[in-house]
Structures are given as C-alpha cells and as structure tokens.
C-alpha cells in the first residue's frame, strides 16, 4: 500500500481540484463521470453502462450512468485469508479504514501458484471427473451413444442429460475443464473460482460512488446473499453490506456496500496524500476509492491498476 500511495503520489500533479472533494471527500456528478472516464481509460476491463431507461438519472450522461466490470475472479473466501502484520497496510493513527492485503493486488501471474496452494483444500474436484459409462462424458475421441430421450430431469446438477446430443471426438479441441487456469502451468493449476460482476453507481445523497456486487459460483449459479457475505470482510458483512435493488436495473438484486462512510474515508485518504505533500485529484478518485473498497472485499480481484503513461 505504501508503494501504491507512493505511485499515486508520484503521478499526481497539482492541478485544480474541487474544493468539496478535498474538504469532504465527495464528488459532483461531473467529477464522478470524469473519474469514471479515467478508470475506463486506464483499466479496460471497466466500461460505462446505460442502464434501464426507466431508471435513467438525469444528472448523469445517458450513456454513462454507471460503471461495470464483469467476470471478475474471486478465488478464495475472506476467512481463508491469513491475516498477518506483513499483509496489513499501516493504518494511519487510530483509523482502521484500510485493512488491505497484498494478495488482492495480484499484480503478477507468479502469484497464482501460491494462491492455488492456499486454496487447494478448498477446492473440490478441480479435474473434470470421468463418469464411467455416462453418455455425457464424451469429450474428444469417444463414440458415446445418444442418451435416452426419456431421461427424467436436468434440474439437478448431478443428473447428466445430454438430451440426445452427440459430438464426435475432435482432436483439435483443447478440453481443459472450465476453470481458470494458471498461464504458467495450465495442466495442473486448474482453479475453479467464483466470479463477480462489480458495478459502481453514483449515490446522489452521499455524493460518492457506490459499489454493487453480483456473484456466481463455479457452476455459474448466482451466489445467495449468505454466500456473498463470505467474500466480504467480517468487519463489514451484515453491517455495511445489504442486498438491494440495483438503482439502474429492473428486477435484479445486488449486494451493495453502503456509502455512508465513503466520504469520510476518502477524506482521510486525501489528507494522507496531502501530508506527504501531494494533492489528490478528483479525476483519480476512482483508483483511491477502489483501493479502499478492496479492504471490504479483499478477495474480489477487480482491476484498478494505476498505469503510468509511457
């Protein structure tokens, strides 16, 4: 974290900032859009969304209602994190608003084996199991007969019903299961992992960004609220995180990190920067904000890498 702040601080050049941003840690809608634009530019995994027309917010551009990054891996549960001094950022004074862990940053592929070691005993059946005689178990090279058309149900994940589909073996297809895999050692590091869609909306009341989460398990089923709470640090689960209707989407509920303390926290971060002689810029708000949010959801590996221009 120290190096992150340093990196940010180095990048910052003193230009004009909104007084309310530095004094209160809040953003105007215009500043929210500018900060979002910079995030999208620097981190291409984020993009702007329009949202449903019925929920259009007039104070934001029609095509920039909120930000989203999809299919974000989450390899381990919060309780699986090993807390130790080395991992924790030095909190400033009495505040405990940043309890950040190095492995969230996941800067390099070389982190993967280590994570996979740790997560090893959490995984069940990483390798695709071979079910002898199952008509569905027909990857490359098998002449499986079609499944009976009268199979009873597909509602249970354990019952495999190929619905008559037959596919001849094809040696050109690389079947490696469906999990994430380590680029370095694809054969033995197949990780099954949860994924999240992460949204950032503008909360008009608190005048800050607000984070929304929708999670999926290894089989692409939505996580239940209780499962989502497993990916939220214990300091925040059930206190600052609630399940609510997404402000820009009809009919789907997301987990939301309540923004009541965002402004205060952002103010502290800006003060922290100021102490080291740097001025926070409101268009870089989102990078600082996402770094702070990573203390709430430390294992959801969304991208907020602060890239320097060449």
């Amino acid at each position: 974290m120290q190096s992150f702040l340093h990196g940010v601080a180095e990048y910052l050049t003193p230009v004009k900032t909104s007084s309310s941003f530095r004094e209160k840690g809040v953003l105007t809608p215009e500043e929210f859009v500018a900060a979002g634009d910079l995030l999208v530019l620097r981190c291409p995994s984020w993009s702007w969304e329009k949202g449903d027309k019925s929920k259009l917010r007039s104070y934001l551009p029609e095509d920039k209602q909120y930000l989203i990054t999809r299919n974000v891996p989450c390899r381990q549960r919060v309780r699986g994190l090993e807390y130790n001094d080395e991992d924790e950022m030095e909190a400033d004074g009495d505040s405990d608003w940043l309890k950040t862990h190095k492995n969230h940053e996941s800067e390099a592929i070389s982190d993967l084996p280590e994570i996979s070691d740790r997560i090893g005993n959490l995984n069940v059946d990483d390798e695709a199991p071979k079910v002898e005689g199952s008509p569905c178990d027909a990857p490359a090279g098998s002449d499986a007969p079609p499944a009976g058309a009268n199979s009873s149900t597909t509602d249970t994940a354990d019952v495999c019903d190929s619905m008559g589909v037959v596919e001849e073996g094809d040696t050109m297809t690389l079947w490696q299961g469906k999990g994430y895999m380590s680029v370095q050692a694809p054969d033995d590091n197949i990780l099954k992992t949860r994924t999240y869609d992460v949204c950032i909306t503008y909360d008009k009341y608190y005048q800050t960004p607000r984070v929304w989460l929708f999670g999926y398990d290894e089989d692409r089923n939505p996580l239940t609220p209780d499962q989502i709470f497993e990916d939220i640090s214990q300091d925040h689960a059930h206190k600052t995180v609630t399940i609510e209707s997404h402000p820009h989407l009809d009919g789907v509920a997301y987990a939301s990190i309540h923004p009541c303390r965002h402004a205060g926290t952002m103010k502290k971060i800006v003060d922290h920067l100021a102490e080291s002689g740097k001025e926070g810029r409101s268009d870089q708000y989102m990078f600082l904000f996402l770094k702070f949010i990573s203390s709430v959801i430390p294992t959801i590996e969304y991208d907020f890498t602060f890239q320097m221009d060449a």
Partner: peptide
C-alpha cells in the same frame, strides 16, 4: 460442456436474487 466437462445443458436458478 457443463461445469463437469460433460455434454449437457446448464441450469441457472436466479430465484435468490
């Protein structure tokens, strides 16, 4: 393939959300 690498459809249950 489904999540177990089998030729089969997938099922998604959105009711929790």
């Amino acid at each position: 393939r489904d999540s177990k690498n089998r030729l089969a459809p997938r099922v998604i249950d959105l009711s929790p959300m």
